[in-house]
Design a protein around this nucleic acid. Structure first.
Lengths: 217, 217, 217, 217
DNA sequence: CATGAATGAGAATTCATTCAT
DNA sequence: TATGAATGAATTCTCATTCAT
C-alpha cells in the first residue's frame, strides 16, 4: 500500500483508497438522500443509493447520528473558512456583509441539513466561530460601516433568520434569501435611531444553543 | 339532545357535547405534547395526557397526520384573524408592522408546531391569507409608510425569517425575534435606494409552497 | 368488565381476561421455545409459537430480558415455596434431604432455563432463600441427621452440582440426578471423618453470586 | 522448507512455521477471549487480540464453530492424558479419585469453555475416553476401594456435577469444587447400603450425549 | 498469504393503526 | 362509543463470513 493510495479523513486517520472512495460515496449519498427525504430515511435507502451494503455504512459511521454529524462537520468547517476569509482577506467596511452573504450561500448549498445545522455548529465550533464573528462585527463597526448598537447576538439572529427563509424557498427560488438579506443589510448601516428592543444577552444565546443541543435528540 | 348540547367543529359536523369535549381535550393534549416532545411522540403518549384511549383519538382523527393538521388549522385560523384585524381595524400606515408583529407573536405562541406551520397554511389557506396580506401591504404603501419596491412575496419571506429566529431562540430568549423584526422594519420605510435583488416571483412562491407541501412527509 | 373476567399477574396489576390469556400463552411459548432452542432464539419465533405478533410480546414484556426474567421469577417463587415447605412442614431430620430433592425436581421441571436460573435467584431472592436454607440445615443438624461440619455454602454447592447433572441428562435420563444426589446424601450423615477441604466462605459465595449477576449480560 | 520448519497439527497437515505460529496465536487469543467474554464475542475481537486480521483466522478455521472446536479439542486431549495417566501410572485403589480430581482441575483450567466442553468430548472422543474411564473404575473396584454398585455412568455424572459447581464458583472460590468432590468421594467407598436409584443406562448416556450434540447450536 | 473492507441476513425494538371487548 | 390490546412493517444496528487489495 503506497502513500498515494491513501486518503485522509477529517479525523486524520488513513483509509485504503477503496475505503476512502466508499466513504465519499456514502457521504454524498447521505447528503442527497437527507436533502430529498429528510433525516428519517432508513439507512438501507442511503446504502442503496451509495451502492454499498448497510454494514459498510456502519463500518465508517458507527451510528446514524455520527453519519449525520459527519455531514454537518463539513458544513461547520466551511463556515469557519468563510469567517476566516471575511476577517482576514476582506476590507473591514465590507466584511460583515460579505460574511453574511457567504453564510447564506453555505446554507443554501447545504439546505438539506439546515434543521440540524446550527445546533451542530453550536456544539462543536462554538467558541471559535463566535470569536471570528465578534471580530468581524467589531472591525466593521470600527470602520464606520455598521451601527454601533449592533451586537454579535444580532448577527447570529440573522443567520437563523436566513435559515428560515432558505429552508422554505431554496428549492423554488434559490436567491430569494438574498433580497431578504439586502433588506436587513440596509438596516445595519449607521443610524441615529437606535433599536429600542434590547438584544439577546450572551447568556440567552448560550441557553438557546444548549436548548438546540438537547433538542437534537 | 338539545341545541345547547351541540358543538360545531371546523368541518361543520355536529358532535354530542361529551364527544366535543373529548375532541378539545385531545387537541389540547396534542398541542402541549408536540410542543414539548416534537411530532415524533407516539399516539399513546398523547392519549394518556388527554386521559382517553388511543382508539378515541382515532375516532376523531383518523390518522396522526390529521390530528397534526387539526392543530395547525387552529393556528391558521388565528393567522387569518390577525390579518383581518390588521387590515380592518388598524391605521393603514401602521398596519403592516402590526401585522408582522402579530404573526410573530402567533409563531411564538405555537413554536412547538413551527416546523410544519407554513407548509400547512400554504396548503389550506393559501389564497385567502395571501389576499389579506397583499391588501395590508398595499394600504401601507398607499399611506406612504412602506417603500414601493416591496412586494407581497417579501412579506412572506419575513414570516419565514421570523420562524427561523423563533425556532432557535423562543425557549431561551422569547423576545429576541422582536429586535430582529425591528431591524427589518427599519428597512421597510420609504427609501430612495431601491433593492437590487429582484423579489421572488409569484410563481416561485407558489412552487415554494408546493415543495413544502410534499416535504411534509 | 366484571371482576371474574380479570386475572392477577405476579406484579399485582390486573389485565383484561384476553390479555391475561395472551400473557400466559406468551410465557408458555417462551418457556418451551427457550427450552428447545436456547435463549438466542428471536422474539419472532416465540411470537409465532404463541400465536401472537411480536408487538404483543413487547406490550407485556418491554424487553426480551424481562420476558426471560418473568419465567425465572416463576421458578424462583417455586424455589421459595419448597424451602418454606421443607422448613415448616417436614420433620427436621428429613427436611434437608427433602429440600434437596425438591430443588432438584424444580430444576428438572425448568431445565430449559437452568443456565440463567441461579444467577437470577441470587439477584432477586438472595437473602430470603438463603435464610430459609440456613434454617433447614441447622434443624437437620440439630436433629442429628446431618454432619456438623456442613455449612450452608455446601448446600448451595449441591444445588449447583445438580444443575450440572440435570443440564446434561434431563432430556435422556430424567432421574439420573436422583442417583447422584443419593450418593451425596449418603455422605451428608454424621461422620467422624471431617471434611479436610474448607468450605467456600460466605464472602466467596457472595462474590460468586455477583459474578453470576454480571455474567448474565 | 526443512523438516524443522514444519509443525504437525492434530489433523496431520503440515504448515509453514510462521503459519503454525499464527495458528497458536489465534488459539491462545481465542481461548482467553472466550474465557473473559464468552462465546458471543465477535471474531474481530479475537483477531485483534491475536494480532492478525479476521481473514487470517478464517484461513485456519473456516468457521467460528471450528475455532471453538479446536480449543475444545485441546481440552479433550488433556482429558485423555489424565485418564491414561490415572490408569497406567496410579495405584488402582487411588486411581479413580485421582482421575476425578484431575478432571476437576482441567475443568477449572478451562472454565471459560465449560458450557461446551462435555458436548464436544462426547462427540469426538466418545469411545476412547469412555473405555479409559471404565477401566479406571473397574480397577478401583477390583482393588476394593470403590463400592461395587457404582457404574461408569456414575462417573460421568460426577464430571457433570463438578462442571455445575465450577461454572458458578470458579471465579470467586477456585477450590470450592474440591470440597464437593470430597463429599462425593466419601460416598464412593465400599458400602453395605447399596444405592436405591438405578444408574443411568448406557443407552440413556448415549442419548444424553446426542442431545448435547444437537443442543450445541 | 495476510489484511481488513464489504456484505446482508437477522436481531431487538418501536409505533401508527386496527379491532375485539 | 370508549378502551387499550394486538398487529406487523419498518428501523437501527450486529456480526459471521466473503473477497478485493
Amino acid at each position: 500500500m503506497t502513500m498515494s493510495s491513501m486518503a485522509t479523513t477529517g479525523a486524520g486517520r488513513e483509509l485504503r483508497s477503496d475505503a476512502a472512495a466508499n466513504r465519499a460515496k456514502i457521504l454524498a449519498a447521505a447528503r442527497s438522500t437527507f436533502d430529498q427525504l429528510g433525516f428519517e430515511v432508513g439507512m438501507e435507502v442511503i446504502a442503496q443509493r451509495a451502492g454499498v451494503g448497510v454494514g459498510t455504512i456502519y463500518r465508517r459511521f458507527p451510528t446514524k447520528e455520527l453519519l449525520i454529524e459527519a455531514i454537518l462537520d463539513e458544513v461547520a468547517d466551511a463556515m469557519r473558512q468563510v469567517a476566516i476569509d471575511a476577517r482576514d482577506h476582506q476590507p473591514p467596511a465590507a466584511s460583515l456583509e460579505i460574511f453574511l452573504v457567504a453564510v447564506g450561500e453555505l446554507q443554501v448549498e447545504h439546505a438539506g441539513v439546515l434543521p440540524r445545522l446550527w445546533g451542530h455548529i453550536d456544539q462543536v465550533r462554538r467558541s471559535e466561530f463566535e470569536e471570528l464573528g465578534r471580530e468581524i462585527l467589531e472591525r466593521s463597526q470600527a470602520a464606520g460601516a455598521v451601527r454601533l448598537d449592533l451586537v454579535y447576538e444580532d448577527v447570529v439572529t440573522i443567520f437563523w433568520s436566513l435559515r428560515g427563509v432558505i429552508e422554505r424557498s431554496a428549492g423554488a427560488s434559490p436567491d430569494a434569501w438574498r433580497r431578504h438579506l439586502e433588506l436587513v443589510v440596509a438596516a445595519l448601516g449607521p443610524s441615529e435611531r437606535p433599536l429600542r428592543t434590547p438584544p439577546m444577552t450572551a447568556s440567552e444565546l448560550r441557553r438557546a444553543k444548549q436548548a438546540a443541543r438537547s433538542a437534537s435528540r
